[in-house]
Amino acid sequence: MVKYTASTHSLLRRQKPLSPSEKEANDVEVPIFIGSMIGSLMYLTASRPDIMFAVCACSRFQVTPKSSHLSAVKRIFRYLKGKPKLGLWYPSVSLFDLESYSDSDYAGVNIDRKSTTGGCQFLGRILISWQCKKQTIVATSTTKAEYVATAS
């Protein structure tokens, strides 16, 4: 089972949030950014749900990546290098109860003020599914954001 630590949440912590049009940032060679780095990280999210939010946030900038986006992706790789043994663990004996959890933030995406929904499903103590998705509507309150997360 993956343990949540403060370092997993702070993968994207910066002075200012990632945005698609940063004037002071330089363009990055697109094929290298899209093909190898983000693709490799998306593959890793199958066994490392602790990096899913950060990888999905970085993948939003694949069309016109800037140097600040590249440094955020490199920060994820440094995190993975420092925590090589974290990942999913499946015990041989487990209960057969299905449990599901969901949560969302309120207007977490600074660009369009939409909320992000996340959730996970357990079969006994085994994590079998998880997701992280930007909501399709702009919630007007934290209650509405949580309701949309639960409904989805």
Score class of each variant (00 low, 15 high):
Tyr4Gly: 09
Tyr106Gly: 04
Met1Leu: 10
Ile32Met: 14
Arg13Thr: 14
Ser40Ile: 12
Lys144His: 13
Asp112Ser: 03
Glu146Arg: 06
Ser67Pro: 07
Ile128Gln: 00
Pro91His: 01
Ser7Asp: 14
Pro20Asp: 02
Thr136Ile: 07
Leu41Asn: 03
Ser47Arg: 13
Val109Tyr: 04
Ser152Lys: 06
Asn26Val: 05
Thr8Asp: 09
Ser152Met: 05
Lys134Asp: 01
Ser94Met: 02
Glu146Thr: 09
Ala149Asp: 08
Ser129Gly: 08
Phe122Lys: 07
Glu22Tyr: 08
Met37Val: 10
Ser36Tyr: 12
Tyr43Arg: 06
Phe33Asp: 04
Asn110His: 15
Glu99Phe: 13
Gly118Pro: 07
Leu12Met: 04
Ile34Thr: 12
Gln135Val: 01
Tyr43Trp: 08
Ile137Phe: 02
Asp97Ile: 14
Arg75Met: 05
Arg48His: 00
Ala25Thr: 12
Lys16Asp: 13
Thr136Glu: 03
Thr45Cys: 14
Phe61Asp: 05
Leu86Tyr: 11
Val30Thr: 10
Glu146His: 07
Leu12Gln: 00
Val109Asn: 07
Lys134Gln: 03
Ser10Pro: 09
Lys133Ile: 03
Gln62Gly: 00
Arg60Cys: 09
Glu29Met: 10
Ser47Tyr: 12
Arg78Ser: 05
Ser141Gln: 03
Ser71Gly: 00
Thr45Trp: 11
Val30Ala: 09
Ile51Gln: 03
Ser115Met: 04
Cys132Lys: 00
Phe96Trp: 07
Tyr4Glu: 08
Ile137Ala: 04
Asp27Trp: 15
Cys56Asn: 13
Thr150Phe: 15
Trp130Thr: 07
Val28Met: 05
Pro91Val: 02
Gln62Trp: 09
Leu127Met: 04
Thr45Arg: 08
Leu86Val: 11
Ala6Asn: 14
Ile38Glu: 06
Ile126Trp: 00
Ser19Ile: 08
Leu123Met: 09
Ile76Glu: 02
Arg14Trp: 10
Ile34Val: 14
Asp27His: 13
Ile34Met: 15
Lys66Ile: 10
Ser104Leu: 06
Gly35Asp: 11
Lys83Arg: 10
Val93Ile: 12
Leu41Cys: 06
Val109Arg: 02
Ser100Tyr: 13
Pro20Ala: 04
Asp105Tyr: 01
Lys23Phe: 10
Thr150Pro: 11
Asp50Phe: 05
Gly124Thr: 03
Ser40Asp: 10
Asp50Gln: 02
